[in-house]
Design a protein around this nucleic acid. Structure first.
Lengths: 230, 230
DNA sequence: CGTGGCCTTGAATGTATTCAACGGGGGTGG
DNA sequence: CCACCCCCGTTGAATACATTCAAGGCCACG
């Protein structure tokens, strides 16, 4: 593993405060791999052998049941995924595949568990990370259960706007966004059309919001669902 | 706080392995309170002052937005809730109210945070608990996004059957169950009717499943959604 | 220059919610 | 102890919402 990659990871909240020794130990068994787009990284149900960190590209987390499939989240650099399965030494609940060409760090799960049972700082960082993940999923559930599909889309766009400004790019295919938002591609198309009346202009992957106040009146965003962490 | 209550809590995975000192310290600021039914314990958005543990009765976690409300979970003894908010010192994402007369332990959040930053065993127990909570919510999301309402109900009944046998009691009002399963009370009524053809007999709050194999063929339960922890 | 996948649109279908009405059980107060 | 009432659950009908199916256009890729 390149020293360069290590320093990139070291600054993550997860690893920032752990001892030098513990970090070096953890990195000893780790390695970095570059994957082409559309490659399956893990399959739900499989035992959790590696903890994953995306340092370049992007990864889709998805789940399947009875022939249906749904996007659960997308992971962008620099962030980790499947921490909970790693900790519990339990089967993955979600599958993962690369969206684009991606560079991924793989750390043996047993190393992660061994380290967090000796290093208090690491253990605390994991607590913090897991708590954040938990709250993210809870917000997601609230979004799904309390809002209609148009409302979900409107709030999604406002969240993007908050991070990237009034003009931004959807960072994923529409069919993937639709699945993430809990609807079909056809329904997303129609929802976008509905939002035209609220100053939403979509051209391919690029979105422009011309009347934020109008969308907000419809979307009614709240920190308790739409903020990253609160 | 009664010594009796303390020993009850002590056996929880969360507290089982921490040092005697740390536990005593934590219990010093804690107190137990008994609440009548239908009392609001916490309100989403409020700052997180206390970590809660249900030792008797039952508590509903719910969320609201834009005049709508949905049940997120019910907590039965002995279990805790809002651990993540406690850890992050962040506002509650969910509200809580008693369903029946309930005895609840309240531990100042700051005490929990102080303890977990010094006691490694406690910190690890929290990691484990949070990982479990996370996986539970993820399973819930998969349930919501991948299954129809009849399928969700069928799987819910099978989970109850697995824990309580072929004849069991719904442990909550039907309207609450409907909300938990992400549907209206009317729709739950109709879903139950659909399941009659699969050997589901419902009389008030008591349920009898006479043809498990039939329901399973419809419900297609999977450990990756329906098992408590895996 | 073909070809396959994605997005869009329309129409038909299916699923779930809303609105309204009714019956029954539990609790309260007379 | 009984009568009343409120809330819950159920049912039906109408509506709204979302999916499915089918077709066509467009772009990217080979």
């Amino acid at each position: 593993m390149r020293a360069n990659d290590q320093t990139e990871i070291r600054v993550l909240p997860l690893f920032r405060s752990m001892t030098e020794d513990a970090f070096d130990n953890l990195m000893r068994g780790a390695y970095v791999q570059t994957f082409p787009p559309h490659v399956d990284l893990i399959v739900e149900g499989d035992p959790c052998d590696f903890f994953h960190i995306v340092i370049e590209g992007s990864v889709e987390l998805f789940a399947a049941w009875n022939g249906r499939e749904t996007t659960m989240a997308t992971v962008s650099p620099i962030a980790s995924f499947i921490l909970a399965a790693t900790i519990k030494d339990a089967p993955y609940l979600m599958s993962a595949r690369t969206i684009e060409k991606s560079r991924i760090v793989l750390i043996p799960s047993s190393d992660v568990r061994a380290t967090f049972s000796t290093d208090l700082a690491f253990s605390q960082a994991i607590v913090d990370e897991l708590a954040s993940c938990y709250r993210t999923v809870v917000k997601n559930s609230k979004d799904l259960k309390l809002r209609s599909s148009v409302e979900r889309l409107a709030n999604y766009l406002l969240r993007q706007q908050r991070d990237q400004g009034n003009r931004f790019d959807l960072r994923m295919e529409k069919r993937r966004l639709a699945s993430y938002l809990g609807m079909t591609p056809e329904n997303l198309s129609r929802s976008i059309k509905v939002l035209r009346a609220y100053g939403v202009e979509v051209d391919g992957m690029s979105v422009t919001l011309t009347h934020i106040a109008d969308i907000e009146k419809l979307a009614k965003p709240t920190p308790l669902i739409d903020d990253k962490d609160s």
